[in-house]
C-alpha cells in the first residue's frame, strides 16, 4: 500500500451534476416484481438519474466545473491543471479532458489528461492533483470525475441495471500554505481485472460494450481490503475513527456499505449515503454523496474519503474538511 502525506494542498470546493431524469428502479424493471423487491433491499437503490443518448459524462462534469468557476469567482486562466477521471469518455482520442479544456476556456499553461479509473478514481484524482500541487508544479487543479455507466448496462441484467446511475463532479484542489496535510493510501490488485469489466468494444475484443460484474468477487475483495486501508489511513493521519466526523465511501451498494460499517464498528451517523437516490455512480459517487449531504458534511472538521472497486483498485484520503465549500447539486438537461 502506497502511503503519501502531502503538504500545502487544500481541497477547496466540490460540486456534482446529474442528468435531469430521475428514474425509479421499480418502474424501470421489466422482470418479476418479487425479484426487484429483493434486489432493491440488497442494493439500497430506489432511484437513480439516467442520461439520454446525447448526454455524455463530460457534459455533466462541465456543468459542475462551470458552477465552481462561477460560484468561486475564479479566473479560468488561473487553472493550471485539469484531470478528467472517467471510464466513459466522449472519444477514444483525443483525451476528453482536452475537449473539456477547450470548452472551459482554460489557458494553454495547463496540464490536461484523462485517468481511466472508476470506483477508486476520485481518490486517485485527488492524489494526483495533490502530488503535483505539493511538488510546486501546479497551483490550481480541477479534478473532474464521473461516469455514465447506464449506457453500458443491459436492461435485463439485474446485477447492474438496477444499481448504476449517471453523474459527474468537479473538485477544485489548490495550493494553500496554511493547509493541514492530506494523508493518502493507494493500492492495486490487477488479479481482479476480470471481476468488473467491459470486455468488448476496444481493441483486444472488438464488439458491443456491456458491463459485467461479479458481485460476490467484488464483495470479497472489499471486505478483505477496505478495513485494513481505513486502519492504515487513520494511522497515517495519527487519528482514530472517533476523531473522524464523516466517512464517505464509494457507494458500491447498501449491502457492502452496511457490512463495512458493521465490520469496522463505525457509527452509522458518520457514514454518509446517497445511493438510495442516485445509485452507484462510479467515480462520481464520493463527491456526489458530499453534495447530497451538503448541510451535514459542512458541520464536520475531519473526513475520510475511500474508493474501491474496478481494477481492483482502491484508495483513501484523510483530511481537514472544515474549509471545503460545497455547491448545490446541478441538474443537466439537453
Amino acid at each position: 500500500m502506497i502511503k503519501s502525506t502531502l503538504n500545502n494542498v487544500s481541497i477547496s470546493c466540490i460540486c456534482a451534476a446529474v442528468p435531469d431524469n430521475q428514474r425509479s428502479v421499480k418502474d424501470d424493471w421489466k422482470g418479476e416484481e418479487g425479484d426487484i423487491q429483493k434486489v432493491i433491499k440488497n442494493t439500497g437503490v430506489h432511484s437513480r438519474y439516467v442520461t439520454d443518448i446525447n448526454t455524455c459524462t463530460s457534459d455533466l462534469c462541465f456543468e459542475a466545473a462551470q458552477t465552481i468557476i462561477k460560484e468561486k469567482n475564479i479566473d479560468p486562466l488561473e487553472i493550471d491543471g485539469l484531470i478528467f477521471v472517467t471510464q466513459t469518455p466522449d472519444t477514444f482520442l483525443p483525451a476528453t479532458s482536452c475537449a473539456l479544456h477547450g470548452r472551459l476556456g482554460l489557458s494553454k499553461n495547463c496540464a490536461t489528461f484523462d485517468v481511466n479509473l472508476g470506483c477508486s478514481g476520485y481518490v486517485y484524482g485527488l492524489w494526483i492533483a495533490s502530488t503535483f500541487i505539493s511538488s510546486g508544479s501546479l497551483k490550481k487543479v480541477l479534478v473532474l470525475s464521473g461516469d455514465t455507466i447506464t449506457k453500458l448496462c443491459d436492461e435485463s441484467d439485474r446485477s447492474t441495471w438496477p444499481l448504476f446511475g449517471d453523474a459527474g463532479s468537479a473538485t477544485l484542489v489548490e495550493h494553500d500554505d496554511n493547509a493541514e496535510p492530506l494523508h493518502f493510501v493507494i493500492a492495486t490488485d490487477g488479479n481482479g481485472a476480470d471481476k468488473l469489466e467491459v470486455k468488448n468494444g476496444a481493441f483486444r475484443n472488438p464488439g458491443t460494450p456491456n458491463l459485467f460484474m461479479s458481485g460476490s468477487d467484488i464483495f470479497t475483495f472489499t471486505i478483505r481490503e477496505v478495513p485494513p486501508m481505513i486502519k492504515e489511513v487513520l494511522k497515517l493521519s495519527k487519528c482514530t475513527k472517533d476523531d473522524v466526523d464523516f466517512f464517505v465511501f464509494h457507494q458500491a451498494n447498501a449491502f457492502i456499505l452496511n457490512y463495512l460499517s458493521k465490520k469496522m464498528k463505525l457509527d452509522n451517523d458518520k457514514v454518509l449515503v446517497s445511493l438510495d437516490r442516485f445509485g452507484n455512480t462510479s467515480s462520481a459517487s464520493i463527491p456526489l454523496t458530499v453534495v447530497a449531504n451538503k448541510e451535514k458534511f459542512s458541520t464536520g472538521k475531519k473526513a475520510v474519503f475511500s474508493g474501491f472497486g474496478v481494477g481492483f483498485s482502491w484508495g483513501a484520503v484523510a483530511f481537514d474538511s472544515s474549509k471545503v465549500e460545497i455547491c448545490s447539486l446541478q441538474k443537466v438537461s439537453r
Binding site: K38, N42, G215, S216, T220, I223, Y259, K263
Partner: peptide, 19 residues
C-alpha cells in the same frame, strides 16, 4: 448472487475468514 454475498458475510462474521 445476493445469497452468495450473504454467505460470504456470514462466514466472515462468524469465522473471521474471507472466502
Amino acid at each position: 448472487s445476493l445469497a452468495l454475498m450473504g454467505f460470504i458475510a456470514m462466514v466472515d462474521t462468524n469465522m473471521d475468514v474471507t472466502l
